[in-house]
Amino acid sequence: MALSVRVIPCLDVADGRVVKGVNFQNLRDAGDPVELAKRYFEQGADELTFLDVTATVDNRSTTYDVVRATAEQVFIPLTVGGGIRSVEDVSRLQANGADKVGVNSAAIARPALIAEIADRFGSQVLVLSLDVKRSGRTESGFVVTTHGGRTETDLDALDWARQAIELGVGELLVNSIDADGTKAGFDLELIRIMRELSTVPVIASGGAGAVEHFPPAIAAGADAVLAASVFHNGELTIGQVKAAIAAEGMPVRA
């Protein structure tokens, strides 16, 4: 017996609504986050991830309301990413019902944030979100990007992942900017590399377009698979994805 593969829908939330767009541009309203969260829960989602893409700090309180309302009705783990810059941010999110938080650019700007959060709440609370792109800029050929992939940093994605694990992250959310939006399948090479170096669970993200894209990502080493638009657009249900994974003999939660 083993852990089942987790299937995780990701909801981009701005000003209390789910939004859709490509790389955070041309955002369109895609519904009520709590209603969508409930629907995914009923379809068998193993976790939920909210990514707060609210433009201004002032409007972040609406995200706390969304988290709270969701946690009151949906009894599966809830991860919230976007705009987390301090131990206090994590504390507030936990008080509102979040189980895990995702950090990205704030940790790049100040890596000590990882250790501060992990020391206070434990590694299991912290997910490092990595937006990775192929680039000649780094030795491994993979660079960490920010701003939805539009800005390249000087960080080698492999070095950054290793450093973040050392500092205390409990999970890696590996999003391939090269695969993102293509709907041509996950970036299997990147998943393999990250699985090989990582001692913490790896969530694969970016590129899902059809049910047959999921089993190869798991075979490449993903502990969990995350997708957004294929679920929001109604192209796929969580159940269909799980059935495709189960058909390949991989364990899923019924």
């Binding site: 017996m1 083993a2 852990l3 089942s4 299991q124 409990g170 999970e171 913490v200 669970p201 502990d223």
Partner: peptide, 11 residues
């Protein structure tokens, strides 16, 4: 275990 935390749904 090689991968920790033990995170997810188990039997």
């Amino acid at each position: 275990a090689e991968v920790l935390p033990h995170m997810g749904w188990n039997t």
